[in-house]
Structure formats: structure tokens, C-alpha cells
Design a protein around this nucleic acid. Structure first.
Lengths: 190, 190
DNA sequence: CTCCGAACCAAACGATCGTTAGGGTCGGGA
DNA sequence: TCCCGACCCTAACGATCGTTTGGTTCGGAG
């Protein structure tokens, strides 16, 4: 409930994304809160807690976006929906997405393990869309679905470096999907 | 010439890639060199020098790989060669490539500006391959070449997170190229 | 009026940060 | 033999790190 605690988490996401986890000091966080650095410890137990919270928020957001993808229907449409959802999260929660994608590795111990498990689960959920598309005959039967999933995953995981808030992420996801589907080859090839 | 100085740069690349620039202390570097931390300053003027050197090595390696791509010939083959070259550099110099892709942003001042210029130049060189492919009629004339280049660039820029040394990068690049060219759509679509 | 909990402050903790100072060792060229 | 340059040492510098302590302020519930 504590508003102030949520504010701190939001600020931590922003600074961790901007300067990196190790590049952000508790003094930086305190200054952004308009507070003495010792006062932060009324809200947290350690700086590492903030990284953990932001990373978990990111994982939750991406999983929630995937949850919105229909379980049935054409694989092509489900893939498009998954890419739309991922890019939308990146654009709407850029700081959190950046920490999720780049700063999570400074987690330690069990938290690191737990995060990695969630991350792998997300990737596996996305990968299965491509596999199902191939197995269901909707995509080409000789599809290299591992490479295709990796290509899509790379596109969305790299997005935090160039995607700006307010971008039309649905259109971007559709452009990626169209390319993945039909490729770049000319209509008439010898 | 100084062997020891090169060794320090190599070690810096490894530790910066493993723990991040701000997560690596001069004591860490010294320990990896088997030396007291003060002794490092017989070889460098500052820790930032090491980041700069590794980042520049990375930029040079990627540009050198692009230089090997023929200026003439089919755009498809040139794109394939460019992806092969990039992935080969990542696999063969994983630490340097990681710093080039992820840690460069801790450069400051002129060095940061200079690095960003080199990085943009590299991206532009790669982008032009796709544009030329479309303009030359080899790729589909309605190709979304900006998105296609971004997709390829995302794939290779994300590679440092999963690519392991010793992998068959030529085969991987060819799988990506094949997907980008022909897409995932089934042969017979309604 | 009292009490509580949330929020914050000022000050300090020991540890570690990147860097500097001054000196020592040792092999090879003049 | 002398000297140089490369290399490394020990010790310390001031700054900053994440965190702790003890005390204060203040709005709202009882």
C-alpha cells in the first residue's frame, strides 16, 4: 500500500536502467527521492531488494502479456499477439523492461536462480508457439523453429535499446511478424 | 608491444563481460593479473582507459569483419557474409563483443561520442546491404528494409547472451539468413 | 490527550573505491 | 660497470560505498 515504497521502486527502475545497478548508489536513489540516503532503509532492507523487486515486476509484466494470447486459433495470429504484447510492455514500462533484460544478472543467490527460471519459462512459452505452428502444419513443415523463435526473441529482447515510449508497438510487431512469415525474397526468383 | 599491457586488456575484457564495468574493481583486475592493485598503474592511467580500449577493439573487429564482405555480387550473399562475419567475431572474441554491445555505455565524454559514431556507422553499413538489395530488385520491391535490417541487427546484437565459443557460427548465420529470406509461411497458403 | 506508525534526519560505521607516492628488483644494452 | 626501462611492491590518500543508530516530526486512530 505504502505509496512511498512504490515510488522508490519506480525510481530504482529508472536509475538502474539509466546508470546500471552497480552504477547507481544509494545516494543517487535518495537524491531522486528528495531524502537522506539513510532514510531509504525505512522502506527497504537492502539495495539488492530493489533490484529483485524491479526484476520480478518485469517478469510478471511479460508473463501477463503472454497470458493475453489466446490458447486457440491460428499460430500466426498467436505469434503476432505475443510480439505485440512483448513490445507493448517494453514501450509502456521501458525502465522495468530494461532491468528485466539487462540488469537482472546482478541478482545473487536464490533470487538469481528464481529469476532465471521465470525467464526460461517465458522463452519456452514463446518458443512453443513456433513449434506448434510447425507441427500443426500452419507454418512450413521444414521450418527451423528453434532459429525462428531465437530470431523473434532477439528482436524483442533488443527492443529496449531503441524502442521509445509512445511508439506504435502493434505496428512494429506486425512488421516483424510479416517479415518472419514471408521473408525478404523477391516474388520472382530464378 | 608490451605483452603485460595486452594481457591486462584481455583480462579487463573478461571481467567487464562477467561482472560489468562498475561491478569490476581495480582489485579484481589486479588479482587476476597476480599483482597488487597499485601496480596496474604502471600500465594504464585509469580504469576507464581499459573500457575504452576494449570497446575500441570490439568496434575494430566488427568493422574488419564487414570489410571482408565483397562490395559486389548478390545482396543475399553479402548479407549472409555480413551475418557470418558478425557472429564469428562474437564467438571468437566473446568478452570483447560483450563489452562492445553492453558495457560501452559507461564510456564518458568524447570517448562515448566517438564510440557511438563508430557504432552508428557499423549499423548503417549493415542497413545499406538491405536497402541495396531492395533497390537492386534482388529482394522484394515492397520490402520493409528498415525493419529487416533491425531484425538482423537484433539477432546479432543479442547473440552475445547465448552464443558459446566454438559454435558453428557460419551455420547459425545461414539459418538466420534462410529464415529472413524465405520466411516461415507454409508452402501452400489459402 | 495519548499513543502509534510512517517517514525522515544527522551522524557515523567499517569497508572498499580508484588513484598516487616512493621505493625496490632485475635483465639487457652501451 | 653503469644505467635504463619495465615491472612490481607497500602504504597510504581522500572519497564514496551500503548500512546502522538513535532521535525527531507529525497526522490520524483510540
Amino acid at each position: 500500500m505504502s505509496t512511498r515504497r512504490n515510488e522508490l521502486t519506480r525510481i530504482a527502475a529508472r536509475l538502474f536502467a539509466e546508470r546500471g545497478y552497480h552504477g547507481t548508489s544509494t545516494a543517487d536513489l535518495a537524491e531522486a527521492m528528495g531524502v537522506q540516503k539513510g532514510s531509504l532503509y525505512a522502506h527497504i532492507e537492502s539495495k539488492a531488494d530493489l533490484l529483485w523487486e524491479v526484476a520480478r515486476d518485469g517478469a510478471a509484466a511479460f508473463h501477463a502479456a503472454l497470458d493475453q494470447v489466446p490458447e486457440e486459433g491460428p499460430a500466426v495470429e498467436r505469434i503476432r499477439a505475443a510480439l505485440r504484447g512483448h513490445l507493448r510492455v517494453v514501450a509502456e514500462q521501458l525502465d522495468t523492461a530494461t532491468v528485466f533484460t539487462r540488469e537482472w544478472r546482478y541478482l545473487e543467490g536464490e533470487r538469481r536462480d528464481a529469476f532465471l527460471a521465470e525467464r526460461r519459462r517465458y522463452e519456452e512459452r514463446l518458443r512453443s508457439l513456433f513449434r506448434e505452428g510447425r507441427e500443426g502444419g500452419e507454418l512450413r513443415t521444414d521450418l527451423d523453429d528453434v532459429a525462428a523463435a531465437l530470431l523473434a526473441l532477439s528482436a524483442v529482447n533488443w527492443a529496449y535499446t531503441w524502442l521509445r515510449p509512445g511508439a506504435d508497438t502493434d505496428a512494429l510487431a506486425d512488421r516483424f511478424t510479416a517479415l518472419l512469415l514471408d521473408g525478404m525474397r523477391g516474388y520472382a526468383t530464378p
